[in-house]
């Protein structure tokens, strides 16, 4: 465990450099928040509530969901890259579990991202677009825990996509497809509760709503009390389940590496 913590820490330092890329992504994110703000105000022009949410709750939801949605990627592309270039063979000889190393690196990167970009964006959202605070102190704490679970889930899921590079060369297409599905079904564009009933039903049996919709709904109070605990239980279940799938396909894939003689 200690070596993964070391990797995690080193990654925090690496990404802690302000570059032109950083500013570009920050400005783009602010643009996104501005568009959301005006778009939803236009939506609410003729009605006070939509799907039981008033404008304030909606703005709060979409802004937090948009910011949280930026953490739904993972180390999958790095893994795919290692597989494609053959770097994986060297990585496998190192004294760590590659999956865990990648996760540690990814979480390290996300920690710096959180401090560098998520916090300032939340401040911007709070100051200029008047998003509200969490429903209650409990909701706030549960939101933090649930967000971490959501980010972990997305990270594990992303590694599975990266792992597919063992079987297909066109991982970038898969990646975009994954991005589209996650973007939509995680609820980072719009609350799942606004989906048509059939889509809501499908969504309940998919892991994606555990990524963004659950934590943000806990924040806004749409999911609370007993339901909140249940939803977080579902999050945990999905993490364990997808992690198990990941490990199983990982050992399958490793057999392939040995066959290649890599």
């Amino acid at each position: 465990m200690r070596k993964y913590i070391a990797i995690f820490k080193s990654q925090i330092q690496i990404t802690f450099a302000y570059s032109a890329w950083f500013w570009a992504s920050m400005i783009s994110a602010v643009f996104q928040l501005i568009i959301l703000f005006y778009f939803w105000h236009a939506v609410y022009q003729n009605s006070d509530t939509i799907g039981n949410m008033n404008i304030k709750q909606m703005i709060t939801y979409v802004m937090i969901a948009t910011i949280l949605g930026k953490f739904m990627n993972g180390a999958g592309s790095q893994l795919a890259g290692d597989i494609r270039t053959g770097q994986i063979a060297t990585e496998l000889m190192r004294p760590y579990n590659l999956l865990h190393k990648l996760m540690a690196m990814d979480l390290g990167g996300k920690t710096s991202d959180f401090i560098q970009s998520a916090v300032p964006l939340l401040v911007v959202a709070g100051l200029f677009f008047s998003i509200t605070l969490p429903e209650s102190l409990t909701a706030g704490i549960l939101f933090v825990v649930s967000s971490i679970l959501g980010i972990l889930l997305a990270g594990v899921f992303d590694l599975i996509i990266g792992l597919l590079a063992f079987w297909t060369i066109n991982t970038w297409g898969l990646r975009i497809l994954r991005n589209a599905i996650v973007l939509f079904f995680s609820g980072s564009l719009i609350p799942i509760s606004l989906f048509p009933p059939s889509m809501q039903l499908i969504s309940q049996y998919l892991p994606f709503q555990s990524m963004v919709y659950v934590p943000v709904s806990i924040y806004t109070g749409a999911i609370s009390g007993q339901d909140a605990w249940m939803a977080m239980g579902a999050q945990l279940f999905w993490i364990v389940f997808i992690y198990a799938v990941l490990r199983a396909s990982w050992s399958q894939a490793l057999r392939k590496v040995t066959i290649f003689g890599g």
């Binding site: 236009a42 939506v43 022009q45 003729n46 009605s47 939509i50 799907g51 939509f184 564009l189 719009i190 606004l194 989906f195 048509p196």
Partner: peptide, 13 residues
């Protein structure tokens, strides 16, 4: 996404 939004409203601005 736009379609889902318009399930709940008739006109946008």
């Amino acid at each position: 996404f736009i379609k889902v939004v318009f399930d709940h409203i008739d006109v946008l601005n």
